[in-house]
Amino acid sequence: MARVTLSAQGAASPDTVWQRYADIHQWASWSPQIRAVHSVRRRLSPGMSGAIESVVGIRAAFVVEAVDHDRRTWTWRVRLARIQIRLHHEVKPQGRGSATSLTMHGPRLVLLAYAPLARLALHRLVQP
């Protein structure tokens, strides 16, 4: 298992960035690899589960492990077939905007392949 951490800074406020995470229906607006998120709940909460649908139609199952709305952090696991990765997200104030970080744990090759898409999504997430 490997660990990769990515981060981005932008002019969007921490509250705006957090709301983009907390409302799963907004994920496709800033994450170019996501077409849709399927879950019975709309707001991030511990234990929520569902599936992410990619722009090419592949579905990966997910389970949210932890959410701290006050600290603006959350952790989830995503699984596609036998591949599983764990992702931990944080949003913090940064100057007049915000900074976000993503720490991923999983198979090294999978993380390295996913990192460019994740980096692009993080940069889009923190833009106003």
Rank of each mutant, 00 (worst) to 15 (best):
A12D: 10
A66I: 07
E90S: 12
H38E: 15
P116F: 02
H88N: 11
R96D: 06
A11H: 08
I24K: 06
A28D: 04
L6V: 01
A99G: 06
L80M: 05
V55E: 08
G106H: 06
G10D: 05
V91F: 11
G50A: 03
A22P: 08
M104W: 02
K92L: 15
H69C: 13
L44Q: 02
W74G: 00
S101L: 09
W76I: 09
S45W: 11
S45D: 14
R124P: 08
Q26C: 07
Q127H: 12
G97L: 00
S98G: 06
R82P: 13
A36M: 09
S49E: 01
L111A: 03
Q127N: 05
G95M: 05
G10H: 06
G97E: 00
L6R: 00
W18H: 09
V17F: 12
I83T: 11
V78C: 14
P128L: 02
T103E: 07
R41N: 15
V17M: 04
I52N: 04
V55C: 06
L125M: 05
A61N: 09
P46I: 01
R119F: 04
H105C: 07
L125P: 00
H38W: 08
A99S: 04
G95H: 00
V56Q: 13
L122T: 01
K92E: 15
L117E: 12
G97H: 00
I24Q: 04
L44G: 01
Q26A: 10
L120K: 14
Y114W: 13
A113R: 02
R59I: 04
L117K: 13
W27D: 05
S29P: 14
R124S: 03
Q9V: 15
I58L: 15
R35W: 07
R72A: 06
R72T: 08
R42I: 12
R77G: 07
H25E: 15
A8K: 01
R82G: 14
T5C: 01
D15K: 12
Q26M: 09
P128I: 04
H123A: 07
I85S: 12
V56A: 13
G106N: 08
P14Y: 05
R124N: 09
R119S: 09
A22L: 06
D15Q: 12
A8Q: 02
L80R: 12
G50S: 05
V55S: 12
V78N: 07
W27G: 03
P128T: 10
S49T: 11
R43L: 09
S29D: 15
A36C: 05
L80F: 05
S13H: 03
L6I: 01
S98A: 09
A28Q: 11
T73N: 03
D68W: 01
W76K: 11
W30T: 01
I85A: 09
